[in-house]
């Protein structure tokens, strides 16, 4: 069902300026971990991919940034769209990925992705994790660079196991993957530098 080029959804309407604006919104999210940032003019993505994740990839992915897609996103429609608009190679080997798109309920989301080396911690993957909602769900406390004191964050669709993996990732600092949670046209960044309390603050 791979479509022709003319059937592809459009990318960024004004590539240079849209990418600049989207980058600043992403930078705002990275600089203020836990902040829910709404991306203005995020394009409707292909298949199951959210506008926010689509916008992120259109802004930052290119032929130098191999992309790994979880099975639910790895469809001909998505592959054609991203290859056409970004030139990004879509790969099967997690270890070689610069970016990855995963679903909140994928098993072992961190497993196998590059977390950098002691001398080059920047050589690590950035994981885009699609979630059902931001701002709802169990409230957790995040601390670290970019956060004044502490911040409360709520991300729907992630279980305790996920947050334990997240704590393990943070413990690798300065190595580790960087996380971006996406839903609709919103995103929230959790760089590896951020610690998130493992036990939820609210009772169920």
């Amino acid at each position: 069902m791979s479509g022709t080029l003319s059937s592809l959804s459009p990318g960024l309407a004004d590539p240079s300026h849209d990418a600049q604006q989207l980058f600043r919104e992403v930078l705002d999210a990275f600089s203020h971990p836990g902040r829910i940032v709404t991306l203005a003019d995020a394009p409707q993505g292909p298949g199951m991919i959210s506008p926010a994740a689509t916008a992120y990839l259109l802004t930052l992915a290119d032929r130098d940034t191999p992309l790994w897609l979880a099975p639910s996103f790895n469809t001909p429609e998505v592959r054609d769209y991203l290859r056409f608009h970004t030139g990004t190679p879509i790969i099967e080997d997690r270890a070689a990925a610069t970016f990855a798109v995963l679903s909140h309920d994928d098993a072992d989301p961190f497993e196998g992705f590059a977390s950098g080396t002691d001398t080059y911690p920047d050589r690590s993957a950035t994981l885009l994790i699609e979630v059902p909602a931001l701002g709802t769900g169990p409230v957790r406390t995040g601390r670290g660079p970019g956060i004044k004191g502490e911040t409360q964050l709520a991300i729907a669709g992630l279980d305790d196991w996920f947050w334990r993996q997240c704590a393990t990732n943070h413990a690798l600092f300065p190595c580790g993957v960087d996380l971006i949670f996406t839903t609709g046209s919103q995103l929230l960044a959790l760089p590896r530098s951020i610690s998130v309390e493992v036990s939820p603050c609210t009772s169920r």
Partner: peptide, 29 residues
């Protein structure tokens, strides 16, 4: 180009900036 740099160079620098923010104080090549 807008802001002088070509888009590919800007993307590369933007990716480096995000890594720099994620690892404060570390020099990203």
């Amino acid at each position: 180009n807008y802001a002088y740099l070509d888009e590919q160079t800007k993307r590369m620098i933007r990716r480096a900036i995000l890594k720099a923010v994620a690892v404060p104080g570390y020099q990203v090549p």
